[in-house]
Amino acid sequence: MKKKVLTVDDSRTIRNMLLVTLNNAGFETIQAEDGVEGLEVLEGCNPDVIVTDINMPRLDGFGFIEGVRRNEKYRAVPILVLTTESDAEKKNRARQAGATGWIVKPFDPAKLIDAIERVTA
């Protein structure tokens, strides 16, 4: 069975990159455009891992992570945060919200797959 990844990002560019990268690496990919949609989609999709951006309209990454962690069913799903290289504060907040790990931008397919491998069995 393919591992399932839920990605949450408001940038169409990044969404497409995630999709191509993850599909090429043999993952099944479900995508959402912001935190609100992410939480909506989460219910039906049972992801093995979640990759989320921080800066998003409607509901940002922090809020989304908190939402996932509050969900009885998904609170243990590994969540990786897409973050920029230098922002320690954002990483802290993401961790406090319950992020499992992070992927440092600029987006690099190898880094993404490595990070996913790291937090999934």
């Binding site: 408001d10 940038s11 560019t13 990044i14 990159m17 951006d53 800066n55 998003m56 309209p57 897409l82 920029t84 931008k105 600029p106 987006f107 690099d108």
Partner: peptide
């Protein structure tokens, strides 16, 4: 303000991916 910030952030994010 957030939307303005996000716009620049988003451009930067994509631009980084393409070097």
């Amino acid at each position: 303000v957030n939307a303005v910030f996000r716009a620049v952030h988003s451009i930067k994010g994509g631009a980084g991916a393409f070097g």
